[in-house]
Design a protein around this nucleic acid. Sequence first.
DNA 1: GTTATGTTTGACCAAATGGTCAGGATCACG
DNA 2: CGTGATCCTGACCATTTGGTCAAACATAAC
Lengths: 211, 211
Amino acid sequence: MNSRSPLPRKPETRIQKRNNQAILEAALDVFSANGFRGATVDQIAQAAGLSKPNLLYYFPSKEAIHTALLTGLLDTWLAPLRQLDATGEPIDEILIYVRRKLQMSQDMPRESRLFANEILHGGPRLHGVLADELKPLVDEKAAVIRAWAADGRIAPVHAHHLIFSIWSLTQHYADFDIQVRTLLSAAEPDPFPEAERYLVTLFTKMLTPTG
Amino acid sequence: MNSRSPLPRKPETRIQKRNNQAILEAALDVFSANGFRGATVDQIAQAAGLSKPNLLYYFPSKEAIHTALLTGLLDTWLAPLRQLDATGEPIDEILIYVRRKLQMSQDMPRESRLFANEILHGGPRLHGVLADELKPLVDEKAAVIRAWAADGRIAPVHAHHLIFSIWSLTQHYADFDIQVRTLLSAAEPDPFPEAERYLVTLFTKMLTPTG
DNA sequence: GTTATGTTTGACCAAATGGTCAGGATCACG
DNA sequence: CGTGATCCTGACCATTTGGTCAAACATAAC
């Protein structure tokens, strides 16, 4: 056994805290831009202002950094869905969720791309999390949506596909940012205001019950 | 200059045709599954049933294979949008487009992931194509959509964002296939029939002009 | 100031990887 | 069948990359 790297100890020194943070921030940059295989430990170390051996003093491997990053980000990433309130006004709640997700695409595109890249490649380092964490949450919220539909408070929709559509439409503006900006180009330097208008219209029409 | 690899000659031998095809097929498999950096020339060669040096006899570099693959696939990829007919019935035309794109997600998920991965990482090998080929096409079709909206034949929508939404919603079922299947799991072994119903409803509601 | 603990590094290694090359095998064709 | 062009391969190379290690350096505690 290797007794060198800081095993899960009670006290975390200031230096540990600072460097761990710097490493994860750097790793987010590098992994989201290049993917797991495309990222090198050296790149991450340099971006974090550390030497490679020093980085490997804090994390035992490239894999470990990646895993720590994903699991550490998961809660943040799922927060908006967790906030979907079964006791709220259905259409409002869903529109709030859409806006929050779109806001996250704007504010946290690196995180979005990190997850997107992982899923795109079959999520070998995420399979467990998908089934164990994400699925229960999605099933729970889908049940809420189904209940709203059953009560006629929103139009009847397939709850899971509704959630998928919210994800795909909002995350598209982070994951495919280059494409979006290239195609809108001069006309619309910032796609997000118009995107919000478009998505609000879309989901309002989709969910408003028909007389 | 290297005079060994088969330069653009008039006649293409049977062997050349067969091996070129095998290489591109194999490359599609490997690149779409692992990304550019994650794919190795050896993997591609093995998948194509060739030795690495032999593969490099047909393509001068890994980069060249990737480029040939992307450019070769582009026409196929954009065909559904090209078919959008300005003289057709607006909502029908768009629904046909949606269905075709969804069908492509089902039949050609590797191609979808290949492009997705490329855009996701800033599309360094696609920038030119985006601006030179895709943008004119999108602008043209967006103009068609705008005209339909101006004539009141569809509800007023931002044409570019409508196109983005069609892409993101349909390609989601290819690019994030693992996630979709994990979350639907036992309940719905094949997501596509329900996805089609959902998307047809969505775009019908989105585009039907309100009294 | 000494000591124990925590932090950092230069030098190094083995494996993987993109690519080359000289020459051998095979094929098309007169 | 013979000959030139095409096709294929084993051996090889340089570089990159994930990871290790002994030893130097800093830090905090006593």
